[in-house]
Design a protein around this nucleic acid. Structure first.
Lengths: 135, 135
DNA sequence: CAAACAAAGTTGCATATACAACTTCTCTTT
DNA sequence: AAAGAGAAGTTGTATATGCAACTTTGTTTG
């Protein structure tokens, strides 16, 4: 390992921009961003989940989460009362299912393109960051 | 390596949020975000650099870059003509130097906290993504 | 029960980011 | 030099994100 310490934050942010772009492309024809699709899939998998729970799990600030879910609701994918658990509308459920299909194929493709060393590299990094996080 | 393929984009975005928060904290008392500090340091290191060049290097969309540099200018850290290369004002140079001191210490701390396996994991991942990018 | 407190959610404000469309700049070729 | 092409930069519009302050909701306790 060389002594030249590159910027962890800068690198991560750049990678997130690159990969987010790739995922966004895959979802454009459904009219959603990756961030929206991700939330929809989380809510689909756990109907009634609270904002606070998603906020912790995804490490998104609660006010950002509040606005994200308001947007999903405005688009007609979430039922009315956002304060007592999140539930998909029928339209939201259908969309979430289509997103999941897209995601599954795409994520598999990306895993293959990056090869297992790269993916494992990210896993190791991720595990370490998360382990420090929980303190 | 297990068969359960986690979401590369989701993971990266979460990590970027976590680490960005950490870096932002370190820069708050200078009144800059990490993103701003990073740009200042790049421009300090390469006076006269073009937006297009930074845009490619950091993989930030050109319109986003345009607004980022406009903000730096509004804050008094960049000289007038943004279309013919970016130059720091005296105030900008002083700030960039202070940011670099902060960054150096912080980035070193983070490298140590994460240990070399984690950092190397990110390097491997990063190298692979960037190699695919250049096609 | 009522006041106090804590947790959850929202809103004001600011920044970071992308895509599409437009403008400006630069260079080449005639 | 005029025209055209392509690169660079900007602007309109929308989303994603964070911090601080506020409101609402739920729990604890005197």
């Amino acid at each position: 390992m060389n002594a030249e310490t590159y910027c962890i934050a800068g690198r991560l942010r750049m990678l997130a921009r690159i990969i987010t772009g790739r995922y966004n492309d895959a979802f454009t024809h459904e009219g959603v961003t990756f961030a929206q699709a991700g939330l929809l899939m989380h809510i689909f998998a756990q109907p009634g989940v609270r904002q606070a729970e998603l906020s912790k799990r995804l490490q998104i600030e609660k006010s950002a989460m509040s606005r994200d879910v308001q947007l999903l609701q405005k688009k007609g994918w979430l039922t009315d009362n956002l304060r007592s658990g999140l539930f998909l509308t029928e339209e939201g459920r259908l969309l979430a299912k289509r997103c999941h299909k897209i995601w599954k194929v795409l994520n598999h493709q990306v895993h293959e393109e990056l090869d297992s060393d790269a993916v494992q590299g990210l896993s190791i990094f991720s595990a370490k960051v998360i382990s420090l996080q929980k303190n």
